[in-house]
Amino acid sequence: MKLELQHDESKFLIRLADTSVILGQRLAEMCSRGPFLEEDMALSNISLDLFGRAEELYKLICKIEGADYTPDDLVYRRNEREYYNIKLVEQPNEDFAWVIARQFFHDLYAETLFGQLTTSSNAELAGLAVKVLKEIKYSHMHAADWMDRLGLGTEESNHRLQYAVDHLRKYIVEIFDFDDLDRRFIADTASLETTWRNAVSAKLQACNIEEKEIVTPSIRDFRDGYHSEHMGNLLSIMQYLPRAYPDAKW
C-alpha cells in the first residue's frame, strides 16, 4: 500500500506520530525485563502513553488527509523508507542506561515541542498537545530521576550511562537540523534547540556525565525517511501479522 500524504500539516505531524509509535514499541520490549516490578510497570505506562499519543496523531493525519485509510494502515503498512521518526527512538535497549538516556533525550525534546504546539492554530492539535504535555512531564521526571541515580550511583552505573550517552548523542544533531516544514509548524525552532541543549548540559554535569566533543555524523536526515539498520528489524516484528494476513481484520 502506498500511502502518500498530500498536506503539509500531516507531513509534519507524521514525524511526531512515528516517533511516538517507535519509542512505544521499544519500551514495550522492556515488559517483564525491568530491574524490578515497579519499574517494569512504569516503563509499560510510558509505552502506553506513547501508543495512545501516536494513535491520536495518526487520527488527526487521517482527518486532515480526508483519507480512506486508518491509523492502523499507517502503522502496519508502510515500510522503513516511508517512516519519519527521529533515529534516536529506534535505537535498541542495549541496557537500562540506554533506555533511560534515550528517554531523557526524547522527553526533553518532546516537552518543548508539544509545549509550543499548545498554541497551534489547529485547535484539535492544540488540545491534544495540552493533554500529552502532562504525560511527557511525568515521563521526563522519571527519566531525569534515573539519570541522577545512574550517573551518581555506582562506578559501574556511571560508566554504563556515559557509554549510552556517548552513543545516543550521535542521533541528536539531525533533530535540530530543521527544514521549512518544521519552521512552519513549530513556533520557535531556535528556542527548541537551545532549551534542549541547556537542559541536557546542566543535567549531564549534575549527574557527573561528561559531555564529550562529537563530530557531526553523516547519517542523512530522518525527514527523508533515512534510518539505522535497527528500523527494518523493528518493523518486521511489529508489522508481521497484518503483512502475513492482509485480508484479516484484527
Partner: peptide, 18 residues
Amino acid sequence: LLRAPSLRSKQVLLAKIQ
C-alpha cells in the same frame, strides 16, 4: 506484545500485562 496486530490490541494487551 510486540506483534499485536493493531494499535488498539497492542494497548489493551500491554495494559493487561501491566
